[in-house]
Each structure stands twice: as C-alpha cells, then as structure tokens.
C-alpha cells in the first residue's frame, strides 16, 4: 500500500514538475522552432516560421520533449519490457508449462508457424478481413459524414443515435451477430425468408465464406461511426470562404469535392485509416465471439489464431513469433502507406 501511495505521489509530482517547467521555459521562448502544422489550404502565415532568432537555444530544444515527457515515460515504462520480451521469446523454446526448459532455438518457432497446415488460408483470411473492413468502414463512414455535413432538422439527435454502434463493446456486438446470424433461430434468416429473398435457411456461420463475411459485416458496422466522426470533424473545419470562392469560380460539385474537400480532409483520412488498419488487423475479439475461426479455420485470422494458440498450447515462443511477424508486417505497411500518401512531406511522420 505504501509503495502504491509513493508511486502515485511520484507520478503526480512528475506531472506537476513538467507543467511548471514548461510554463517557466515558455516565458523565455515565445517563438520556438516551430514546424508549422500541415495545412492543405495554405492561406495563412507560413512566414512566421523562424522569423525571430532563438535566444536560449539549449533550453528551447528540450521544450517538445518536456511536452511529451509524461506520455513517453508511461509508454516506455509499460510497453518497453513486454516489447523486448516478446522479441526475445520469439526465438526461444518458451512454454509456460515447462519453465525449466527455456532456451534459444533460432528460427524454429517461425518454421513451426509456416508448417501449420492451414497457415496460408489464415493469412489469406487476414488480408481479406482487413482490406474489406477498412475499405467498408472508410467508404461508408465518408458517405455518412458527407450526408451529415449539411444542417437539417434534428441533426443533433440523428447523430447521437447513428454514432451509437461505436459505443457498444465488441463482445456484445459479436454475440448479437452470432445470435442473429444463427442459421436456425436467427432473425436474419427469418427476415430474409419472410421477405422472400431466400427460400431456404442459410447456415451463415457454418459455411466457408459466409462466416468470414458475417465477421466483416460486424466489424464494419462497429467502425462506421468512428470514421464518420473523424471525417465530419475535419469537413466542418473547412472554411466556408473557400467554398464560396469556388462557387464564384463556377466549380461544379464534383470538382469541388475532388479539388477542395478531398485535399482538405486528406490528413485526417490518412491518420484514421492508418490507425484503424493497425487496430483492425490486431483485433480478434469479434472473430472469437462470432465464429471462433470456424468452420474449419475459414474465418480464422492471424491474431485470432494466435490468441487461441497461445492460450491452448501454452507455447508463448510460437505466439511471440507470430506477434513479431504481425508487427513486422504492420511496420512495413505503415512505412509504405506513409510514403505513398506522401504524408511525410510536411514533417508529419
């Protein structure tokens, strides 16, 4: 208990100190080395940059670090060890059930991983799952955001409702889908039959292809609001004057969309897609709840496979190897994504 109190006091003091420090320093350096935030429509003050020569160079350099200190400290403290640990475990024979038999085994874990009979099916599923989910969320979220971008009666109420799926936990959403798409007593089949869209019940969760589709649908349903909120927020910040100017210039709505709207919301869209891809790629709760990877691994993805594998075989060497592999794929993705979208140009990322 004492340790806890001391720890908390420490964290609190640290934060207070940081704030005070920043406050003190900033008084001396009103015009630091600012990198101007990227603004697609450059209508204002790019000239202010580095206009005034810094007076207290050494201290100013530390300024951004001070701002980021608490965040960085927390993340390094909490993630540092697990991160390093999983890299080491990936090259070890590491079974929870045999703590006495831990030793380095080179690439054995990776070999074992690619020796699994269904591994290519699982990899294929993972890509389909991520690609369609992200695209679906993005396109539908964008549509919703555009539709919401104009005032109409009761817009507030409408938004409050339409954003709700995002606030449900994945496990409740998963359970709802597992239940609704049940081939026998599920409401989806019942509805489709009553509407004469199908003549025979479909075993949604028992048919290869369909089961993955249900998981993807659930994922999209859950994620639309997030994209919509982010895109809507940036749509709303497009200065009206720009649209007015384009009207005078005689731009059509399509041209306006592609030449003003898209460039303006691009940074937000890029960040959102980036973060969501990572998040979706790593999420397995929906899959575990809805189909448990079934039937016969046809809706299994790498993370859900890893989750089941780690906890059923206790082989954390294998799980870590898979984890490291996932991270490697994601790092490559992030790099390529940022390069191709040229987000780098403005000093962002």
């Amino acid at each position: 208990m004492l340790i806890l109190v001391l720890y908390l006091l420490g964290v609190a003091l640290l934060c207070a100190l940081g704030i005070w420090f920043i406050g003190r320093h900033s008084r001396h350096s009103r015009h630091g080395r600012f990198s101007h935030g990227k603004n697609p429509v450059r209508t204002h003050g790019t000239t202010s940059r580095r206009k005034n020569r810094p007076r207290l160079g050494v201290q100013r350099k530390s300024e951004p670090y001070l701002f980021l200190l608490p965040t960085l400290l927390l993340l390094l403290l909490m993630f540092g060890y697990p991160l390093i640990n999983s890299f080491i475990m990936a090259f070890q024979n590491y079974k929870l059930t045999a703590p006495g038999k831990i030793y380095f085994n080179g690439l054995d874990n990776f070999r074992k991983l690619f020796g699994e009979s269904d591994i290519w099916l699982i990899i294929r599923n993972s890509f389909i799952y991520v690609l369609i989910s992200v695209l679906g969320q993005f396109l539908l979220g964008m549509t919703l955001a555009l539709a919401l971008n104009k005032k109409f009666k009761l817009r507030g109420l409408y938004q409050a409702i339409v954003f709700l799926p995002w606030s449900l936990s994945a496990f409740v959403i998963g359970l709802m889908h597992r239940w609704s798409f049940n081939g026998e007593y599920g409401v989806i089949n019942d509805m489709l039959i009553k509407l004469s869209l199908i003549s025979e019940k479909i075993a949604w969760l028992g048919t290869p292809g369909f089961s993955l589709a249900v998981v993807i649908m659930a994922m999209i349903w859950m994620g639309i609001p997030f994209f919509a909120i982010m895109i809507l927020a940036s749509l709303q910040s497009i200065p009206i004057s720009i649209y007015e100017a384009s009207h005078i210039d005689g731009c059509g709505p399509l041209r306006r969309f592609f030449q003003i709207t898209i460039p303006y919301i691009k940074p937000t869209v890029i960040v959102t897609i980036l973060l969501r891809t990572i998040w979706i790629f790593n999420s397995f709760d929906l899959i575990v709840v809805i189909t448990n990877g079934g039937p016969a691994n046809y809706s299994q993805t790498l993370p859900s496979y890893m989750y089941t594998k780690a906890f059923s075989s206790y082989d954390f060497g294998l799980a870590s190897a898979l984890g490291v592999l996932l991270m490697a794929v994601l790092v490559v993705y992030v790099t390529v994504f940022l390069k191709t979208t040229r987000y780098n140009k403005a000093g962002n990322f």
Binding site: M78, F79, Y81, L275, N282, F316, G323, F349
Partner: peptide, 20 residues
Amino acid sequence: MLLFFLVTQMIPGILVIIPL
C-alpha cells in the same frame, strides 16, 4: 517517437498482459 507510438498499437495484447 511516432513510430514507437504506432508500434505500441501493434503489439498483440496477450504479449503485453502477462508481463504487465
């Protein structure tokens, strides 16, 4: 730093929970 932020989002949860 940014890459580190992103990497923290990439580690599969189970690998974090046990050490934590």
